[in-house]
Amino acid sequence: MKLLVAISQTPETTARIAFKDGGTAFDPTGVNFIMNPYDEWYALVRALELKEEKGGSVTVIHCGPLANEVTIRKALAIGSDDAIRIDMEPDSAYNVAQQIAAHAATAGYDIIFTGKETIDYNGALVAGMVAGLLNLPFISHASKMVFNGDKAIVTRDIEGGTEEIEVAVPFVVSASKGMAEQRIPNMRGIMSAKTKPLQVVAPVAAESLAKHIEFRVPPAKTAVKMVDPANMDELVRLLHEEAKVI
């Protein structure tokens, strides 16, 4: 199977979130960047498992500047065969989706994977847009994928449960927790990643129809109000009269 995994780079989960330049840009001071966990732990690893089961290849694609190649090398170290970096600073989900679709349009992938969302923008848009641009079936929030002959049986998270969906390749899927288990790259993987092909491609002309203009962090929480554990009537009163939630 010929598999493509779109990977994104995000601040790590415990990073302090702050903005600079009058709230117009993320402040990367002191922040470690990682591969978006949904892309890495679930999408990429499931793609690698499928390759191991069925043969084929796993290509990763990333839209970002040169500095992000460390994230791409990690994807190669975990086991991807080759990588494409679209040399750009992404400014919208639509721009990224157009880059991925432009690459995938003639490449003949069986499955295009992404994580269900990135942990920074929480947009959950790129996978659906790629499916729309390429007119491919799209299944979001996949927590399991097995094959029955040439058909994939995908378990998808829905509110309060799951559903099982049958689909034939080619298709686009976004992965949530459960698709696979995290893999730690070993020394051999890390060494071989240095020599695996990483192709740098100029972006295609693309539009961004929605923009994030200004960022801010929420106002600091007012100090917690402590309630006497012996007096739960007081907590109920506060929830009713002050917080107005019951």
């Binding site: 989900a93 639509y94 989706a97 959950a124 848009l125 659906g128 729309g132 641009l133 129809l209 929605a210």
Partner: peptide
């Protein structure tokens, strides 16, 4: 979430989620 990206592409409309 499955629909928003698809609908936006089909209509060539800007989209914001959440």
């Amino acid at each position: 979430k499955s629909l928003s990206g698809l609908v936006a592409v089909k209509l060539k409309a800007g989209v914001l989620s959440g």
